[in-house]
């Protein structure tokens, strides 16, 4: 029998076997609620992990190929030093492009801190030059020496100083998200095991009767496993749906909002949500199987 056929048979189930095990009240509610709550939490942990991953990727990939040259000079020398720095950069191996940011771009950069109405003209701001590297990159130390010799007011910043800890932080956040998912899965397994144990204990008499009439332990276990798997699947389905709705209600990503408003799924990542109820079902299946095996072994 193929695995697919086995899964199909399990999903379809045996209506008569289902009837043999009576529904037990509080374990139903416990399983459905815990699976739902855990699925809801997994949605957010997954969203956090994926968003942190995107952030880490962006910081490490996009910013890794860019650098900034900052020119601090008296206003009358600013244009000359900027042009000199651009000349140096254009003749540096490993520099794909270099351009001085215009006034509006500098205003945009400062707007989050000083507001959009900032009169840049009145401030002694340094001139920023955006440098894009080639895939091979440039020799940072060599470039610094050249700039120091030809453009005294130029300072090269290849972002490494602040990018590395941010990438590390985003990576940690991503790891934290996955760790949270693992803990939630384990907690779900533990709760369903408790519920299954309670249901099996409450049905000791039923198990005794079924054994008396010749039921195999695998048949008895199957009835419980199917029940708990379907409960977890249903509960997790509702929890996932609610979690997804809550995510959709978050403010949409914007430049001002930064990371928090980007917490969500993008593109194909939404399909990952479909895996959460399946994961809950698999956890319930394994937890109930272990609980049933242990309980049936202990019942004489």
């Amino acid at each position: 029998m193929s695995a697919f056929q086995s899964i199909l048979d399990f999903a379809i189930g045996d209506a008569q076997a289902e009837r043999a095990v009576p529904p037990t009240g509080f374990t139903v509610r416990l399983t459905v609620f815990s699976a739902g709550a855990m699925a809801f939490l997994v949605v957010f942990a997954l969203a956090l992990s994926l968003a942190a991953g995107r952030l880490a990727d962006r910081w490490s990939d996009e910013l890794a190929r860019s650098a900034t040259v900052r020119i601090s000079a008296p206003s009358e020398q600013m244009a000359a030093q900027t042009e000199a720095a651009l000349n140096v950069l254009r003749t540096t191996q490993g520099v794909q492009s270099a351009r001085a940011l215009n006034l509006q771009e500098q205003r945009d950069l400062l707007a989050p801190w000083f507001g959009p109405e900032l009169a840049l003209e009145t401030l002694p701001l340094p001139q920023m030059i955006e440098v894009i590297e080639t895939a091979q990159g440039f020799d940072g130390d060599g470039l610094r020496l050249r700039l120091a010799g030809e453009v005294p007011g130029a300072v090269l910043d290849n972002h490494a100083r602040w990018r590395a800890p941010l990438v590390a932080a985003a990576g940690s956040l991503r790891l934290l998200g996955w760790l949270s998912i693992l803990l939630i899965v384990l907690a779900t397994g533990a709760m369903i095991t408790l519920a299954a144990n309670a249901a099996l204990a409450a049905n000791a008499q039923v198990i005794a009767v079924m054994r008396l009439v010749g039921a195999r332990d695998s048949y008895i276990a199957q009835a419980f496993m199917r029940r708990f798997t379907l409960r977890a699947l249903g509960g997790a389905g509702v929890g996932t749906l609610l979690g997804a709705l809550a995510l959709m209600l978050l403010p949409s990503a914007s430049q001002e909002g930064g990371f928090l408003t980007g917490l969500g799924f993008q593109g194909a990542h939404w399909l990952l949500l479909l895996l959460i109820p399946v994961l809950a079902g698999v956890v319930a299946f394994i937890a109930t199987r272990l609980a049933a095996r242990n309980t049936l072994r202990s019942l004489t």
Binding site: Q16, A17, R19, A20, P22, Q205, V206, A208, V209, M210, R211, L212, V213, G214, A215, R216, Y219
Partner: peptide
């Protein structure tokens, strides 16, 4: 056990099933 029929003094049945379903239980399992 399918070859041995057992009748207990306390006649254990599944109380949530009808008599007909209880009698058919050995066939079901």
């Amino acid at each position: 056990r399918r070859r041995v029929g057992v009748v207990h003094q306390d006649c254990q049945f599944l109380d949530h099933l009808s008599l007909r379903e209880n009698l058919a239980l050995p066939l079901t399992v």
